[in-house]
Design a protein around this nucleic acid. Structure first.
Length: 274
DNA sequence: AACGGAACCTGAAAGC
DNA sequence: TGCTTTCAGGTTCCGT
């Protein structure tokens, strides 16, 4: 589930619920999420410590616990942080529970592709690969900046946008949405796009990130107590065969580097490949 | 160095 | 109905 907007919302909720509070206990239901050390070491690094700050880098969360101690979390593809009252039952697929005095944070992750670790800052950043991340996608607003970051790659622009070493935060959905908003063919090599195209693509990235933040922030509040799923907030993602919101042509889906790419052939000027 | 593809995991939905 | 295949919003490793 999580790309930059979801992780940003997770960070805000985390701050709201836990900043300034002490982590009382850690329950490990499935140790496969824990990296870089034993279960006991992980628990030992966290229990009794106070949450000073929660920071997001791309899709990564880093929690400052004081005295140089840090806690890293990555939600992978299916991870979620669910906050509940202390006595509430865990949601299905809860793998770890972090208990505070007035609430409990459940790390829910059906596919176990998420990860977490705790330890001294430098070691943790190396383990998590945070030093290898490109700039955060929310901070890249200029076409020229975007071009400098991804424009030397010969990969298709969609692949380049999702490369966290170039630009941190975009995943499959946000890349599809940004390319649609910018009117860009996802298969064009990144180094073959014009300056003007980078300008509209940068605008597309900013627009989709803010749109998703607002839509899902709203969802979180509105649907907090409802079991119903919210409507699809995206323009093209998950809308194969629906009408393009811009030109009404049927939207298409094709596999690209193993991931589904949703697009409008007309608005994004996609010609036959293969 | 840089790229495509498989692997890591598991569940839900679609297809037959 | 029940079995099989495909797909899923991520990252890393491996071979070319």
């Amino acid at each position: 589930m999580p790309e930059l907007p979801e992780v940003e919302l997770a960070a805000r909720t985390f701050r709201h619920r836990a900043e300034g509070r002490r982590l009382r206990s850690v329950e490990i239901l499935d140790a496969r999420l824990i990296r870089g050390g034993t279960e006991d070491a992980f628990r030992g690094s966290l229990e009794g410590r106070r949450v000073d700050a929660v920071t997001r880098f791309g899709k990564h969360l880093v929690v400052s616990l004081g005295e140089g101690e840090r806690w890293w979390l990555h939600l992978g593809m299916t991870g979620k942080l669910a906050w509940r009252a202390p006595t509430d039952e865990s949601p299905r697929f809860t793998r770890l529970i972090f208990r505070f005095d007035e609430s409990a944070m459940h790390f829910v992750d059906p596919r176990l592709l998420g990860a977490t670790a705790a330890g001294e800052e430098a070691a943790l950043r190396a383990l998590a690969g945070i030093d290898r991340l490109g700039p955060d996608a929310l901070d890249v607003r200029e076409g020229a900046t975007l071009r400098r970051l991804v424009g030397r790659s010969r990969s298709p622009i969609k692949t380049a946008l999702m490369d966290q070493k170039r630009l941190a935060g975009l995943g499959n959905i946000q890349a599809c949405e940004a390319l649609f908003r910018g009117g860009v063919d996802p298969w064009t090599p990144a180094n073959a796009l014009s300056e003007d195209t980078y300008e509209s693509l940068a605008a597309g990235i900013v627009a989709t990130l803010h749109h998703t933040l607002e839509a899902e922030g709203e969802r979180e509040i509105t649907y907090l107590n409802e079991s119903k799923g919210a409507p699809n907030p995206f323009l093209v993602y998950g809308r194969e065969a629906e009408a393009c919101p811009n030109c009404s042509a049927p939207l298409l889906r094709e596999k690209q580097a193993g991931r589904g790419t949703f697009f409008c052939a007309r608005c994004q000027n996609v010609n036959g490949r293969d």
